[in-house]
């Protein structure tokens, strides 16, 4: 394991964690968090799928991970909240720090990491046996948290996910009765209910129509004022529309692990990339 100290360790991680563990903290005062990935390498069994990826995801920004299929974007994203290790043969090297605390160290449990760094998946996956309201609150019962006013929390989360107006009169209906786009926003609301500092989104719009996609993109822009967002997308227009920062992943030749070719402000990556391979990709030469 390579351990590189990031400059943020000076920020006294203990203070940050105390803030998080007190759940009474009002949403408005919730500080945004940063994630610093340093030299992250991932394996599935003997196959190395990602090599020495270093990327900082800044507070209050949307970072987009772009690149062709199979270049390790999703693996990288899943390593950021310890979902990577759920695959039995998975392994990882490097450090990933949430506000200066290594999430793979003993200082954090996987459940704490995942409740602070939420995730929205490619395919909408509301819990089929639960109502819309129960879906929003599922994270609380799963992680043993309690909330004094669940009704208000449901409304708040559904509003933030841009779904409230459409479902406010049928909160007790099943989550599967919604359309695909609504289901995905329900999943966003569900992720927000546990008050994450960071939200990871793995191609959240790839299964949706353009109108639903636009609504979710609006939601992302609104959320990023309070939450740090990392989004994997295949859609380069989407990356340009929603992200502040972009990282371009690429597999050089078949069998190689994925690497970050270039990362920087979105405008720069798209309009004035420093690497010719980035230029080829963002201008549609391949991919």
């Amino acid at each position: 394991m390579t351990t590189v100290q990031s400059p943020q360790t000076a920020e006294t991680p203990a203070a940050n964690r105390q803030l998080v563990s007190s759940e009474i903290l009002p949403e408005e005062l919730h500080p945004s968090s940063r994630i610093d990935a340093t030299d992250v390498t991932c394996w599935f069994g003997k196959r190395k799928v990602l090599e020495r990826c270093t990327l900082s995801m800044e507070p209050g920004e949307v970072t987009a991970l772009i690149g062709p299929s199979g270049c390790g974007k999703s693996t990288f994203l899943r390593s950021l909240n310890r979902m990577h290790e759920l695959v039995p043969v998975a392994a990882i090297a490097g450090t990933i720090e949430l506000d200066g605390v290594d999430i793979y160290s003993e200082e954090m449990s996987p459940t704490e990491v995942r409740s602070r760094i939420g995730m929205v998946f490619q395919k909408p996956n509301p819990f089929p046996a639960m109502s819309i309201a129960d879906n929003v609150l599922a994270g609380l019962s799963l992680s043993g948290m309690s909330n004094e006013d669940p009704k208000a929390l449901v409304e708040q989360c559904l509003r933030r996910a841009g779904l409230w107006a459409e479902v406010s009169d049928r909160l007790n209906e099943g989550g599967m009765s919604l359309s695909g786009g609504q289901q995905q926003r329900l999943c966003i609301a569900r992720a927000l209910a546990v008050h994450p500092d960071v939200l990871l989104m793995d191609e959240p719009c790839s299964a949706l129509d353009p109108i639903s996609t636009r609504v979710i993109e609006q939601t992302i822009r609104e959320l990023c004022e309070e939450i740090t967002i990392v989004i994997v997308t295949h859609n380069m227009q989407q990356a340009q529309r929603v992200s502040d920062k972009c990282a371009f992943f690429l597999v050089e030749s078949i069998g190689d692990p994925g690497r970050i070719v270039e990362a920087g402000p979105t405008a720069q990556v798209f309009e004035n990339p420093s690497d010719p391979r980035t230029y080829d990709y963002v201008t549609g030469q391949f991919g």
Partner: peptide
Amino acid sequence: PRSQCEAALALGGSRWGMIKEVLLP
């Protein structure tokens, strides 16, 4: 479905929480 189990874990659920809220139902 694996996606259901992963959803439960990604919300900060423990394995027991996932079993109780997703697998057994």
